[in-house]
Each structure stands twice: as C-alpha cells, then as structure tokens.
Computed example of a mutant assay.
Amino acid sequence: MTMSKLYASWHHGFTAVAENPGTSALRQGFGVTFSLPANGGDWIHLAIPTPVIVEDRRATLDRVLILFDARETSALLAVHVWDGPERILVREGLRVEGDHAHGLSADNVFPVGRDGINWGCGISMFFTAGQIDSHVFIAGFGGDFSHNI
C-alpha cells in the first residue's frame, strides 16, 4: 500500500540573497531587509532545503511559501521556482504589495505540483520599487513536499 508522506522544509529569511551585488541587505535575527532604489528592481533568490529522495522515491514539490513584506512602493512582480537548472514554475504579471510576513494567503503561497524533483529547489522573486527608494523584508520561506512511499 502506497501512502503519501508530507515534508515541510523552511529556511530563515536572513539566508536570502539579491542577484545584484549592489543591492544592500541588512541581515538581522528576524530576517533580511533589501533596499531597492526608486524605479529599480532586483531578483531575490531563496534556496529551499530539499528532501530529493526519501525511501527510494523522488519528492513532489506541492507548493512554495514566502513570508515577505513589500514596503513603501515596492511590489512583487514575478515568482519563478527552480529544480536545479530547470525552471518548474513561472508566475508573472503579479503586483503583490504590503505585509505578508506574518501568515499565509493566496498572495504568498504558490502551488507548484511538480513530481520527480531531481536536484534541489529554489525560489526567485522579482521585486520592483516605485518612485521612491523602497524596501523588501524576507522573514522566511519554504516548500511543502510529498513522497509516495
């Protein structure tokens, strides 16, 4: 009899990195705050600890979850999810603003539903700033996995 076992894997927000080395990051015990210049933007990358194989079965990534706060005029415009070098989810055309660092909702939970994870999962998020310098805070992030064992 095959049963689906669930596995949630999270990482603390202060492990997030910006793609542009010029984007400043203030790392503190409760997360990381990135500074975006007015009318600028950057990709923020999040590495999820990934249980690729459990009891000889490859993982399914059910969804990714991101606790973030898009402050001032910043907004989340895109979310890409990766299995190593392979992009397995593209969500673009978003405009998520405001504080989503203290709970889960449709604005910070992204269904993936990808079976057969091979390498290790990561999330890439593109944030933009409006007409004033703005900040993006990341508190934590993770993935919900399942294994049919």
Score class of each variant (00 low, 15 high):
M3C: 10
P51C: 03
M1H: 09
N118Y: 03
A38R: 15
D99A: 11
L94C: 06
M3S: 13
D42M: 08
V136H: 00
D107N: 15
P51F: 00
I88G: 01
I117R: 02
F68W: 05
R63L: 02
V112I: 11
E97W: 05
T73Q: 15
S9H: 01
E55G: 06
G93E: 04
G98Y: 08
G140E: 02
G93K: 10
A70I: 00
M1I: 10
K5T: 11
N39K: 13
D62S: 06
F34W: 03
I138F: 09
L104G: 04
M3I: 14
V81D: 00
G22P: 00
I138G: 08
T15W: 14
V90F: 13
R87P: 00
I88Y: 01
G40W: 03
D42P: 02
D144E: 14
V52A: 11
R114W: 01
G98I: 06
T73K: 11
M1N: 06
F126E: 12
A70Q: 00
I138Q: 01
N108V: 10
W82T: 00
F137R: 07
V32Y: 05
H45K: 15
G31A: 10
F110Y: 14
V81M: 04
L36Y: 05
S74F: 03
N118D: 09
T15L: 14
